[in-house]
Simulated scan of single mutants.
Amino acid sequence: MNKPKSMKTIESDKFWDGVAAKYSQKAVPNEEMYQKKLKETQSYFSSEMRVVEFGCGTGTTAIHHAPFVGQIDAIDISENMLKIGRERAHQVGVGNIDFHLGTLHDFNAEAESVDVVLGLNVIHLIPNWQVVIAEVARILKPGGVFVSSTGCLGGSYMRFLKLVVPVGKCFGLMPDLFVITEDELADEIKAAGFSIESQWHYGHKDMEVFIIARKNAL
């Protein structure tokens, strides 16, 4: 029997479904930085790799990466986001992306079956983000790679957003948002069995953190 979704998850589903069309039209905030992240990530790819991206949104990054890998499973909680992603992939002739509705846990990949996991601009939106990192570690092969970009607001003035989020959610203006620090994120990744190979900042006040971590071999 399927477990019912929590109220928070249902609310976030509705929020992202509602903004999907507008979100799909937004330009990348910093194209130069986006290209840097794409290039660094692609340096870890090879043509036979299986990649899983959770929180894929409208599939833009998955489509960029598709020519460099064998298969991408792109996962999101918003069906409207996924619909746009499927249409975009079809329009550009990309056939090696499968789009899945749900969470990384819903996807339930076999243990040690994935070469690379991407979690881009999503970890700070997940209530149980520590559990998600543990799931990433479970499904990655030894030596596999976890790529994340995360808003780490805990050490900045933006940490006070946690006081505003509940009100914003009540009015459908905001999704879930969780205030974490860069140290908390990096420590959690390392505690899950990873070694961090790249870690750098970008964005407003350097509050965005890009991390590439490799799962430790047994």
Rank of each mutant, 00 (worst) to 15 (best):
G203L: 06
W129D: 02
P127L: 12
G203S: 06
K141F: 03
S148C: 15
H204D: 12
E11I: 08
R88W: 05
A213N: 08
N80R: 14
F68P: 00
Y34C: 02
G193T: 04
F171T: 04
E48L: 10
S113N: 10
V94Y: 08
M33N: 10
I126Q: 01
E182K: 15
I72R: 12
Q130W: 07
S195V: 12
M1H: 14
L161D: 01
W200M: 06
A27M: 11
A21H: 13
E197S: 05
A192I: 00
S148H: 02
P4Y: 08
V51K: 03
K3L: 11
A191N: 13
W129L: 03
G143E: 07
V114K: 09
L118W: 06
E32W: 09
R88Y: 04
H124I: 02
A20E: 06
R159Q: 14
R214A: 07
S198Y: 13
K83I: 02
S6G: 13
I97L: 06
C170V: 04
G70R: 14
K190S: 10
M33R: 14
K26A: 09
H65C: 08
V94L: 02
L82K: 07
G95Q: 10
S195R: 14
I77F: 05
L82N: 06
D187C: 04
R50L: 11
A21S: 14
K169G: 05
L101H: 11
Q91N: 12
Q130A: 06
M158N: 08
H65T: 01
S113T: 07
R50W: 05
E188I: 00
A217K: 14
F107I: 01
G18Y: 09
G18C: 09
S198R: 15
F171V: 11
G119E: 05
I126H: 03
N80Q: 14
I126C: 07
A21G: 00
D176G: 15
L125I: 03
T150S: 10
G18A: 14
T150R: 07
S43T: 03
W16M: 06
G151A: 11
H100M: 10
V94C: 11
P127C: 06
Y44C: 11
D206Q: 14
G119M: 08
D176I: 04
F68I: 00
F15H: 12
S12D: 15
A74K: 10
M49G: 00
I10N: 07
K8V: 00
L125R: 12
N30D: 15
V69P: 03
V179M: 09
A89N: 05
E182N: 10
V51W: 02
P175N: 02
E182S: 13
Y157C: 02
G154E: 04
A213P: 09
D73A: 11
L161E: 08
K205E: 14
G154H: 10
W129Y: 13
N216R: 15
D73P: 00
V209Y: 12
S43K: 14
M33H: 09
C56F: 05
K169A: 03
R214K: 15
S195M: 11
T60R: 15
G57C: 06
H204R: 14
S78D: 08
G193A: 06
Q91T: 06
G57Q: 03
N96V: 02
E32C: 02
I10M: 13
D115V: 08
A62P: 04
V51S: 03
A27K: 15
F54V: 04
G85Y: 01
